[in-house]
Design a protein around this nucleic acid. Sequence first.
DNA 1: TGTTAGCACTCGCTTGTGGTGAGTGCTAAA
DNA 2: TTTAGCACTCACCACAAGCGAGTGCTAACA
Lengths: 339, 339
Amino acid sequence: MLDERKRMVLRAIIDSYIETAEPVGSRTIARKHDLGVSPATIRNEMADLEDAGYLQQPHVSAGRIPSDKGYRFYVDALMEPYVFPRPQLQQLQQEISNEKVSPERSIYEAARLLAFLTESVSLIVAPSTDQMAFRYLQLVPLEDSSILVTVVLHPGIVKNRIIRTKKDYSAEKVAELSAMLNQKLKGITYRELGPTVFTEVIRDYGEIGRALVELILQGLLEDNGEKIYASGTVNILNQPEFRDLERAKALFETLEQKDYLLSLLSAGTKSSGVQVVIGEEHVSSVLQACSLVTCTYYVGDDVVGTIGVIGPTRMDYAKVMAAVDVVSGALSALLTQEK
Amino acid sequence: MLDERKRMVLRAIIDSYIETAEPVGSRTIARKHDLGVSPATIRNEMADLEDAGYLQQPHVSAGRIPSDKGYRFYVDALMEPYVFPRPQLQQLQQEISNEKVSPERSIYEAARLLAFLTESVSLIVAPSTDQMAFRYLQLVPLEDSSILVTVVLHPGIVKNRIIRTKKDYSAEKVAELSAMLNQKLKGITYRELGPTVFTEVIRDYGEIGRALVELILQGLLEDNGEKIYASGTVNILNQPEFRDLERAKALFETLEQKDYLLSLLSAGTKSSGVQVVIGEEHVSSVLQACSLVTCTYYVGDDVVGTIGVIGPTRMDYAKVMAAVDVVSGALSALLTQEK
DNA sequence: TGTTAGCACTCGCTTGTGGTGAGTGCTAAA
DNA sequence: TTTAGCACTCACCACAAGCGAGTGCTAACA
């Protein structure tokens, strides 16, 4: 479809535009990338590439900039994949797994690292716990009619809640319920949980039982905190496409809408590997000047969450994709290893 | 020091400047606030106020803007305190205490609310746990040489960590240690903890004991997560003083430096009530165009944290101070009540 | 047939200039 | 002590001119 030279020209233009954020002229290409042809020839090629939809011209007397279609082709077939130098790679992996405090903390640090690496905004969806096996469950009666519920899930994630009951229950009864639930649930996931457990609980334990069921259903597992973190939002202001305050503000506001982001990142959950959505490929219009690079991460073989990077369509795809890949890999390794 | 009319003029100027962010001229004052004197008279007063250091002039042909000294006087002696209308007040208090999920969550919600109310950036220092009494402590042996440590503190704050031990310990031994610690610690605060507990633990339990001591010392209590939250950072971009991207970026970057913010908010911990630091009163130069309004919050009678609002020196002090006061009060009530 | 040099043309960006108006300080009169 | 009048300052805006990067087209060349 595109001959070799056209591809080289297109790649040179996109590389240059990614670096400088300035429309690229024929002269620049001829000078920087030694293609052995004159600017005039390149101009002809550029005109063809524009006709074919890969490039566009902001105005007549300016150079060319890539269109979304151009970026898409670049990502799929043109760009040179970025490979982290071995030492840096190891350092990154170490930095993520070093955080021994808690998996949640590691995830947060991973988001920071990803933002730092890509100089963009990173997003991380917290691991969805309903595919994680229960490792331990305990109820502890506290004074004044409260019960502390503690759940430990398989990758070392601990969740707690204190629930209030209307009347006191004997320590024995609570302990019995606790042991029974712990035994029933250990090793299985929330998903695998049949309704039988709950009916049984409600029959035998009444109010606490019901309260507990509600708790688990309603989201001790899911809602105990944020489901999605954004990190590095400041980086937006370093990107020339967001010099315009209104645009920057619009993006900031989009980033505050956690639900929206969540749906965005959850879209590519089925496919594996690094996914890229470019500009107008976004369904919603808010992000049509942005691209999104995502990748899922795992506990064992189960997808539990997604990480991603949002930046202007003029992002350094090679580097961002490499970073997303590495970080998701390291995160999966971490979560899988410390079962 | 300042006669009645000068005070009225100064107040009118500051009120107007807070509202519009535009330098205020003598005409405007004469027209809006009906002082019964002509612009010329006001001009004379303004010249005096400028000489006295309360006002300044961006350039000769512009109106006056308040100086930091002007704001200080305004806050201390001039402004009309803002009082939330009763229904809104009740609604606010309810919104904060409604979040029954966990105290941490409530704190986070309080930060959001405060940012929303003031249309500025809100900061909340997470409650310092070393003045909170232990309510419950438990060690649970998990499989593969791990022990789950759970601590419940008095305002319903739960902390966990999983620690790894080099060898397995019998469930009995762990349970014994758990019970012993729980009994020793219950009701006292980290502060009140003498060294005797620890030496005893180390003598009797060796490695786990030491690991546990380290854990508590090093910060199961302190470091398990962020110590300071910032909310509403987007609001920066709505304020005319941050039209300039460089300035906005500088502030954003300052807000990322958690340690710095922490030291800033911890400064006023001793004094009670709402504190205001205006512009150049800040020691560090980064925030010299900003003011900071802070207030401590409590568990019972103990100060456990600080909340605050950062905005341009041209903030609506009356409203911000009222909001900070209300939110800190509601937060204290919440934390104190659900011991 | 593809490539290249030359050239006229476009148009965004920068710089300079004059006009406008808000606001001041000073002076003199009430 | 207050106020009206007035000359003066200076940021801001609009407009025009000039510059220059980059283009498309044409004609010559390999």
